[in-house]
Amino acid sequence: MYGKGIAALSAATVVTLVGAFALVFFWAPNDADQGFVQKIFYLHVPMAIVALCGFVAGGIFAIQHLRTRDAVYDLKSYVAIHLSLILAIGVLVTGSIWAKAAWGHWWLWDEPTLVSFLIVFLLYATYQPLRFSIEDRERQARYASVFAITAGAFVPLNFLAVRLAEAYTHPRVLSATGGAMPGDMRLTFLVTIVGMALLFVTLWRFEMAAKHTRARVSALRRRLDGDADNPVLRRSAAPTI
């Protein structure tokens, strides 16, 4: 059921992303101050926004899991957080490269957005070890949901605290004034955000479909072997359905 429409979605993702990066390289003007290097902005910022939204989405799925106790929501939350973690590594790497190019340092502590992102990343990096160290599957799902809700609420509060604490060297991309970007840059930026969000949704759907299929295959295989009643209990961080 997660495979339905996935081909069209993938096509839309590819078209949007290719279009977005065509805009980035051939249409959007070079930054007057930083030159060509500034183009990494169109990769770094959309990834960061999508990753944070993915973390929050993981928290929302976790709320639904605790409400309904349906293991599917745990799986949804797990996949969202898992993908966001991968994106988050990309954000830290591209952010570091950009910081080196623009400010001359690989890492800047007086840079609230990068620092708060690192803290969020470190927090979510404990999600998988937490799951892995609980053997009982049902308890693993419940505890992971409690973690996902707490951490999801932590994301905005952490950004608030770090931003208050630091100087303002990081550009405010989504400020009330629209970040003072010229029109063509802003349009390119919005297209890259849409492309990155589509990429996230597509990967999420693929992963959900793959996990579902794998669960069904192993259930069928167990039935073929005649031991449907005692499922194989392997230790794993991934939820089972």
Binding site: V120, L130, R139, F154
Partner: peptide, 29 residues
């Protein structure tokens, strides 16, 4: 909260501080 989360995992002395420290960064700041 985190203590209750960590106490019934296998690596409780590790999981507890690992989760609690990032959560407490705003308090430290």
């Amino acid at each position: 909260l985190v203590g209750a989360l960590a106490v019934r995992t296998r690596a409780r002395d590790l999981v507890g501080p690992l989760i609690a420290l990032p959560l407490l960064v705003p308090v430290v700041i």
